[in-house]
Every structure is written in C-alpha cells, then in structure tokens.
Simulated scan of single mutants.
Amino acid sequence: MARTTPHDHPHEAGTPLYRRIARELLDELRGGAIPPGERLPGERQLAEHFGVSRETVRQALRMLRRDGLVATDRRGSHAALPGPPSRTPASLGFP
C-alpha cells in the first residue's frame, strides 16, 4: 500500500476529504491490496499512507463500516468485502 502521490484531485475539490479517502481505500480493497477478511493497517499507518490526519481516517472508516465494507472489532478493522461490489455505495457520493 505504499504511495506518495498527492491527494488533490481537482474533479473532487468539493468532496470532503474523508469521503475521498474512503473512496481511495475502497478502490484499494477492491483492487485486492487487502483480501476480504484481512486486517487493515492501523489508523496511524493509513493516515501516513494517504497523507491525512488520523481523524480523517477514522471518518473514512466510519463511512465504510456503516456501508458494511469494513468491520471493526477489538483487534482492529478488517476488509468485509465478500467479492467485488457491483457499484460504489451512494453514501460515498459517487455514482
């Protein structure tokens, strides 16, 4: 999951940062960076990966949990994708 690209996407300028991070994380999960059921990196590591604060990562994870795409227990967050979803959940604000 190493990446150093900037996260300033002009076409998403009006989209809250946590929604953009949620979408990027979802894209990485769908791309197989983390298989379903596998544990996600910790908040600190995700924050470094995406170049954002831990609070932004928390908000993004909260959205993905609400949509059933990430599950969290006392050991951390896990990818909950049973397979590639047919479309992005509406709560992410994308078609």
Rank of each mutant, 00 (worst) to 15 (best):
Q59A: 11
S77G: 04
T88C: 02
R54T: 15
E12Y: 12
R30V: 15
H7C: 12
L61W: 06
P41I: 01
G83L: 02
L17R: 13
R74C: 00
R58K: 13
T72S: 10
G37F: 06
G83I: 00
L81I: 08
H49W: 08
V52I: 05
D73E: 05
T15Y: 03
L69H: 09
H78D: 00
V70S: 06
G51V: 09
E55Q: 09
L64K: 02
G68S: 07
D27G: 07
F94Y: 12
E12D: 15
I21S: 09
G76Q: 06
L25W: 07
Y18V: 06
P89I: 03
R20F: 04
H78Y: 15
A79F: 00
A33T: 10
A80L: 05
G37E: 04
R44C: 00
R3G: 15
L17P: 01
R3F: 11
I34N: 04
D27L: 13
E43L: 10
L40Q: 07
T4M: 11
G68H: 02
E48N: 09
L81P: 04
R75I: 00
S77L: 01
L46Q: 09
A79S: 15
R44L: 05
G32E: 07
T72V: 12
R19C: 03
P10C: 12
F94D: 04
P89N: 04
T56I: 11
A47L: 09
R65K: 15
R87N: 02
F94H: 03
R66M: 04
E43R: 10
M63F: 02
L25I: 09
A47G: 10
S86F: 04
G14K: 12
G37Q: 08
G32W: 05
H78F: 15
R62D: 14
L25Y: 07
E28M: 11
R44A: 11
T72Q: 14
T4S: 13
P16I: 12
T72I: 04
T4K: 14
A22Q: 12
P16R: 09
G76I: 09
L61V: 10
L17S: 10
P35I: 00
R44H: 06
R30L: 03
A2L: 15
L29R: 09
S77K: 01
L69R: 11
R54N: 10
R3V: 14
A60T: 05
G83T: 03
I21Q: 10
A90C: 00
G83E: 07
P85I: 10
T88W: 01
G51F: 08
R44W: 02
E48I: 12
A80R: 06
R23W: 08
A60R: 05
G37L: 04
E24H: 12
A60Y: 02
A22S: 14
R66F: 10
D73P: 01
P85L: 07
G37R: 08
T4D: 06
D27Y: 05
H11P: 11
R87P: 00
L46R: 08
Y18H: 14
P10Q: 13
I21V: 15
P10L: 14
T4P: 02
L40E: 03
R20V: 14
A71Q: 06
R66G: 03
A13V: 15
E28F: 03
E38L: 03
I34W: 11
E28W: 04
P95L: 07
A13Q: 14
R23L: 14
L17D: 08
D8V: 15
T15L: 12
L29N: 04
S86I: 10
P10S: 14
A47V: 09
P6D: 15
I34P: 00
A2W: 13
E43N: 08
L46D: 04
S53T: 15
L29P: 03
